[in-house]
Design a protein around this nucleic acid. Sequence first.
DNA 1: AATAGTTGGTTGACAAATCAACTATTTTTT
DNA 2: AAAAAATAGTTGATTTGTCAACCAACTATT
Lengths: 152, 152
Amino acid sequence: MHHQDSIGKMLGFLHRSAQKYFNHQLSKYDLGSGAYMFLIYLFHNDGATQNETSSHLDVDKSHATRIFHNLEKLGYVTRKHDIHDKRVYRVYLTKKAISIRTDIKEIMQSWSEIITKDLKENEKDLVKKLLWKMSKNVTDMNDAQNKLCQNS
Amino acid sequence: MHHQDSIGKMLGFLHRSAQKYFNHQLSKYDLGSGAYMFLIYLFHNDGATQNETSSHLDVDKSHATRIFHNLEKLGYVTRKHDIHDKRVYRVYLTKKAISIRTDIKEIMQSWSEIITKDLKENEKDLVKKLLWKMSKNVTDMNDAQNKLCQNS
DNA sequence: AATAGTTGGTTGACAAATCAACTATTTTTT
DNA sequence: AAAAAATAGTTGATTTGTCAACCAACTATT
């Protein structure tokens, strides 16, 4: 990676590097880099619906379907139909998932420490703030376009 | 995207959003988000080898193989065997590729402007500097691990 | 109550990217 | 000069993620 590389290239590089790291660290749990986000969300929102989860993670709902199916097959979650709405599945963590909760958190933490190794506290805050601003610019653009579509 | 979201989540979101944007903008050229990086590299390094390209872009060489094959099929590049080394392919831009050079640069530029819309000049520099620092931390770790492997 | 529209989830097809195993050359060792 | 190691590229299998089309169930309209 070079100094003059574009923001986009570096974002891609960091994302793919994270995937590799998580794939490697999570392989002993039979998990891939795709799954851990979903588990993290459930750790804080056990019993969430698939739709809720995918919209919070900003991924396609079909992706959530497949990830949760796999997590169920591996015994990390169980899916139960909602009582009041037969369409929705609520996803619950199993003991197996809860037992690796701290491990996963630690892996996440270790990645975070690797990439921000030589950043000062205020730089860490700054990079977070700037990434958030850029993310917001994207969602704002999407929202504007959706509004446009509805009116046409 | 929320304020307390992790750096990793935001990096992933921005990367995926960029892919969607480029897929959409490039569809009229039959190109996907995977291809444009390779074209950009060739714009500055026409006749580069596949290996050179993939290592500069930090992607797997097999990925380069497939992308270049497709670009050749679409008529954007031609691949010629090096005279001195029969193993290597050198990849050359065609007129078709050169004719869309400015378009592609503009699309890249427009994405860059979207995500940094409300950032001040110094903030843009800062985010680039910080992303670069984080990227460097990753490559440093990889280098250290490679060294370790060789010695064992 | 019947119809139409919306929502939650599933499926199939595809692109992006990685890894591992392989072939064919080239370079290095001995 | 022969054997071994390294390099460039290819192929197959797999994961991550998207989009579009779909079904079933729920909600709103008339």
